[in-house]
Amino acid sequence: MMLTGKNAIIYGAGGSIGGAVARAFAREGAKVHLTGRTREPLDRLAAEIREAGGAAETALVDAMDPARVGEHARSVFEADGRLDISMSVVGIDDVQGTPLTEMAWEDFSAPVVNALRSTFVTATAAARLMIGQGSGVILTFGGYGPPTAGLGGLQVAFQTQDSLRSVLAAELGPHGIRVVTLQTGGITETLPADFEHAAAVTEAIDGATLLGRAATLADVGNVAAFAASDLASSITAAALNITCGSVADH
């Protein structure tokens, strides 16, 4: 197993993407600390992981709150002796479908500020602990792809995360800490069941790929586990492209 003996905190673990990452980490041997703002989905996921033979703990943590994030990360570090992986997959509330010329500043800036704040708060809290042990992996999730109209501040939010990832990687690399982004072109499994345009959005996302399909939740978990493992020890300051070809790297 790729993550045997590793200790991981996942912020936003109650969501579908956070859950996929947590299951993959646990399957590969990591002890996962599941955090979020709502207790029930965290406890349900922890029970599922334990039933499958994995190790999971839960805690209510608001990823926007530096004091609470730092307190929790420190408690994990002190209880288990190390913190190996930190990943934030906190949801970003955004307004889509409205032209920028018709959008209020508050609606445009909200996803940008929230994405940057949650990434900064969780990453730096983990880094302060990882520096002392001389190792660690910080993962972010997003990736913005080609410019697309109608997405409001979402792509700008992902770009700010990517810029922060690069700076963090530069500062933390000398301490043995890697910082990596998982770049997707959209995970169609996460679309709400009652979303009236789900079929059209799925067709658009799938149609833009070279493989004729979007990445699945299982794909996200598998790549996250690899990125967090020692098998990827030479990868940092990079985005791992899991867009199924909708974004071509040059």
Rank of each mutant, 00 (worst) to 15 (best):
S135W: 15
G152T: 01
L129C: 00
Q133G: 03
G143C: 01
A126N: 09
Q133A: 00
T122M: 03
S109A: 15
E102A: 15
A115P: 12
Q96G: 10
A149G: 08
D93R: 15
Q155R: 00
P111Q: 07
F120N: 01
M130I: 01
I131G: 14
P146H: 12
G134K: 05
A149I: 03
W105M: 13
Q133C: 01
G152Y: 02
T140P: 11
R128L: 10
G153K: 10
A110P: 04
G134Q: 08
P99Q: 09
V112S: 06
Q155M: 05
P111A: 06
W105R: 09
E106M: 13
T148Q: 05
T122H: 05
A104C: 10
W105G: 05
A149L: 06
Q96S: 06
G143W: 01
I138S: 10
L151P: 07
P111H: 03
T98G: 00
G143M: 04
E106N: 15
V156K: 14
V112F: 07
F108H: 04
V112R: 00
T119W: 11
V95R: 09
P147E: 08
Q133F: 04
Q133S: 00
P147C: 03
L129I: 00
A127M: 09
F120Q: 05
G136R: 02
S109T: 13
A123D: 07
W105C: 12
G143D: 07
A104I: 06
E102I: 05
V137S: 00
V121G: 01
M130G: 14
G134C: 11
I131Q: 14
A123H: 13
Y144K: 05
T119H: 12
G153A: 11
A123V: 10
A115R: 13
L129A: 00
V112K: 00
S109G: 14
Q155I: 03
L139E: 06
I131F: 09
N114Y: 15
V156H: 04
A127G: 08
Q155F: 02
P146G: 12
Y144M: 10
V95N: 05
D107E: 10
V121T: 03
G143L: 05
S135V: 10
Q133K: 01
Y144E: 02
G153H: 03
L100F: 12
F120S: 08
G143A: 04
E102D: 15
G132D: 14
E102T: 02
T124R: 14
G134A: 12
R117N: 11
E102Y: 02
L154A: 09
I138P: 08
A125Y: 02
D93I: 15
V113T: 13
G142W: 12
V95L: 11
P111S: 11
Y144Q: 05
F120R: 03
D94Y: 09
A115Y: 14
T148R: 02
M103Y: 07
F141V: 05
G153V: 02
G132T: 10
T101D: 11
E106K: 15
D93M: 14
L129N: 04
P146F: 09
F108C: 02
